[in-house]
Amino acid sequence: EQRVMALYDFQARSPREVTMKKGDVLTLLSSINKDWWKVEAADHQGIVPAVYVRRLAH
């Protein structure tokens, strides 16, 4: 499974989004949309801005 790391803090503004802190490692579920990526963090799935995360090497 692909992982991403948060580059910045992000506060969810809707139930579809995921709140994350800089340095958090999340599971990447989908990167089809270039602006918003779907991730999973602590059993919560949602979207985060793609520019706020970076793919981690396997």
Rank of each mutant, 00 (worst) to 15 (best):
K21V: 02
L26W: 03
Q11T: 13
A41W: 06
A57T: 12
W36D: 06
V18S: 07
F10K: 07
Q45W: 01
K22A: 05
W36Q: 08
E17M: 13
R54D: 13
L7F: 06
M20S: 15
S14C: 06
A41Y: 08
D24R: 04
P15S: 11
Q11V: 13
E40W: 05
S14K: 02
M5W: 01
L29A: 00
H58G: 12
K34D: 13
E17K: 08
Q45R: 12
Q45D: 07
T27V: 08
R16S: 15
L29P: 13
A42Q: 12
V51E: 10
W37T: 12
V51N: 12
R54S: 06
W36F: 04
Y52E: 11
P49N: 04
D35N: 11
F10A: 03
L56M: 12
A57W: 04
D24Y: 02
M20Q: 10
Y52A: 13
Y52I: 01
V18T: 13
E17W: 02
V18C: 10
V18N: 06
L26E: 07
R54A: 09
K38A: 10
S31I: 15
D24Q: 15
I47H: 11
L28S: 04
T27N: 10
A42P: 11
M5V: 15
K38G: 02
A57P: 14
F10G: 00
A41P: 05
L29Y: 05
R13W: 03
S30L: 00
L29N: 07
D35Y: 10
E17I: 00
V39R: 01
L29M: 06
A6S: 07
Q11W: 00
R13H: 09
A12W: 02
N33V: 02
L56G: 04
K22S: 02
R3L: 11
W36N: 08
Y52P: 12
E40D: 09
H44G: 14
E40P: 03
L29V: 13
M5R: 09
E40A: 14
A6R: 03
I47N: 10
A42C: 11
S31L: 09
D35V: 12
V18A: 09
G46A: 03
K38S: 10
Q45H: 15
L26S: 04
T19A: 09
Y52D: 06
T27L: 03
W37I: 15
A41R: 13
Q2C: 08
Q2F: 14
V39Q: 02
A50W: 01
N33R: 03
L26M: 09
T19G: 01
G46R: 06
V53F: 08
L28F: 08
A42E: 12
Q11P: 01
L56C: 11
N33G: 08
S31V: 15
D43G: 15
P49L: 01
K22H: 09
L7T: 03
Y8V: 15
T27M: 00
F10E: 05
F10S: 04
Q2L: 06
K21T: 04
V4Y: 05
K22I: 01
K34A: 10
E1G: 08
A6P: 01
E40H: 12
H44M: 12
M20I: 06
M5Q: 09
W37Q: 05
V48W: 02
A57C: 12
L7G: 06
M20G: 02
N33Q: 07
S30G: 12
E1A: 05
Y52H: 09
